[in-house]
């Protein structure tokens, strides 16, 4: 089967992250469930996430917008899919 191309390039800034165990907001807001805990600890003692399979990324940028520690960058490659967080009045 042909691999899908990811809609965004997701970069995790490991040194800013406060860990999947204590925070985990990225895993919660990702509609494709792409985040899993990394086995490598960062300089402040937290385990930042890593991306399981980037090709599934829908480009919604939820992870970047919700990350409280400015630790995720999601650069859109093409027009992303509509986000999964409630955004009923987006067209206003």
């Amino acid at each position: 089967m042909q691999k899908k191309s990811p809609k965004a390039k997701v970069t995790i800034i490991a040194e800013s992250c406060k860990g999947m165990d204590d925070c985990g907001i990225c895993r919660f807001v990702c509609p494709k469930d792409l985040f899993e805990a990394c086995k490598e600890m960062n300089a402040t003692g937290y385990y930042p996430p890593e991306i399981k399979d980037e090709s599934d990324c829908s480009g919604c940028q939820n992870c970047m917008i919700c990350c409280p520690d400015f630790a995720i960058v999601a650069e859109k490659k093409t027009d992303g899919a509509p986000n999964s967080l409630e955004d009923e009045d987006a067209e206003q």
Binding site: K9, E15, C23, I25, C66, C67, D69, F70, V73
Partner: peptide
């Protein structure tokens, strides 16, 4: 890659002061 909003923050401050999972960063 650097965060697109990093240009609005002081460069010498590397991370937020909040507890893990706190909504203040959002």
């Amino acid at each position: 890659s650097t965060h697109p909003l990093k240009k609005y923050t002081r460069s010498h401050i590397m991370r937020t002061t909040t507890c893990p999972g706190c909504g203040i960063g959002t």
